[in-house]
Design a protein around this nucleic acid. Structure first.
Lengths: 248, 248
DNA sequence: ACCTGAACACCGTTCAAGT
DNA sequence: ACCTGAACACCGTTCAAGT
């Protein structure tokens, strides 16, 4: 997972050329890339494909962008713009929960964005706006300085981690359905029976998962994690406030 | 990120061939793959490279494995075996914290494993053992049924999310150092000044991050998240117990 | 049964040459 | 200044042919 490597740094630090005889723009490149990513994932996106959709040759894209990675970085910020959040929500827990839920639904719409989100720090304008919103809500909760950072990171990491797991699981299910795999096949049954003997708790949970609706389960889990985390954050910042009040 | 697609399912369900004139084994293939992944990441690993290191041709690997993805799946379970954890630790919070910390250090040793971990559900033997350990600790905490699943997922997702962010950040820093980028360059300064104006909280946090040790910060954040989460879990399962005691 | 060697159908990126 | 067209140096995977 390489990222731009030269000394002029991230895409965001290199202004787009002033238009002259241009037929293209970074915006148009992203316009072409996002639908392909949504429909076919990273696998479906090639520089040749983008170029073809725009009616040019692959080489010409490199006039606007230095690597394919730049395209993905731009595409990520584009979809981050779809996440709505209210920085002025008076109840910080409601505000953060909303931010988390909106992020989740955006990521389910643009699954490819998960990888981009996790591969490099995010320096696009929409990423910054979202970060500021989160920080605002958490600072209203009472966090400051290093704890403010840590709290923000904790929420982000939980959302990203949860959606990654959810998407991986959903993809596997659809792949299995498409290729007609059955859990009841011989080798599978033997393997799982073996597993069950050594891992009783796991076996019970797998059995329970079989009958239930995967989509509903993921959503329940996401909400469980969210309330759990907000509860923990509230407790932590109460403790911090108490300590501050007690110590000089 | 495609995974095995045919109807015989995951690698784990296909037994290795009985030896006859074999020069290779899945084990040897993994032996060759892991060091390459550790040293050069996904980018450095090709079927041709593995084959060369084993003194055979690329094509022959396909006798043991159906896709490159199979190799990665096997490699992941190999390194999951390095994570130690005590399922019988009497204090469940200590036990889970230990599991989380050990997972983190393993993932920092084998950064490529993060992507594998997140791309598909994990069906290898070592993955199962770790899952059982986590479930055991959490069931001792008082979780059961769907909440047991949810609690386990929450912890896992937090660890994975946190380490992903940590690795992304570290990689960016080393990349910047290697290519000699300076935050003080002209374009960067302008861009960041612009950001600071619109995002005061973010600007303050970025300024604070500049002077501090990234490695120490990540560890602090990881611990913050961990205590936060365990606190939240404890509260949630107390609440669950209370409800159960009150309602019929 | 296992491995080779060559081929197929792709990649991202570069760069002379055109306009 | 911008774009083309061809090339370079790779990929994963397949498969006849060998042993």
């Amino acid at each position: 997972m390489p990222v731009s490597d030269s000394s002029d740094g991230s895409v965001w630090l290199r202004r787009e050329r002033p238009p002259r005889d241009r037929q293209l723009s970074r915006g148009q490149i992203v316009d072409a890339a996002v639908p392909v990513l949504d429909a076919e994932g990273h696998r479906g996106l090639s520089m040749r494909r983008i170029a073809a959709d725009l009616g040019v040759t692959a080489g010409s894209l490199y006039w606007y962008v230095r690597t394919k990675d730049d395209v993905l970085e731009l595409a990520l910020d584009r979809v981050l713009g779809e996440v709505g959040a209210d920085p002025d929500e008076p109840d910080w827990r409601l505000g953060l929960a909303g931010l988390a839920r909106n992020t989740r639904t955006m990521l389910l719409r643009h699954r490819w964005a998960l990888l981009e989100l996790t591969v490099r720090p995010n320096l696009g304008p929409n990423a910054f706006t979202l970060a500021e919103t989160g920080l605002r809500l958490l600072s209203r909760a009472g966090f400051a300085d290093a704890d403010l950072d840590a709290a923000m990171a904790t929420v982000n990491d939980q959302v990203v981690g949860a959606v990654i797991a959810e998407v991986a699981w959903r993809d596997t299910l659809t792949r299995m359905r498409r290729s007609g795999v059955e859990w009841s096949e011989h080798a599978t049954t033997l393997y799982l029976r073996d597993v069950a003997e050594r891992h009783p708790l796991l076996a019970r949970r797998m059995a329970a998962a079989k009958g239930s609706d995967a989509e509903r389960d993921s959503e329940r889990r996401f909400e469980f994690a969210l309330t759990c985390l907000l509860e923990g954050l509230a407790a932590t910042c109460r403790a911090g406030a108490d300590n501050a009040a007690v110590s000089p």
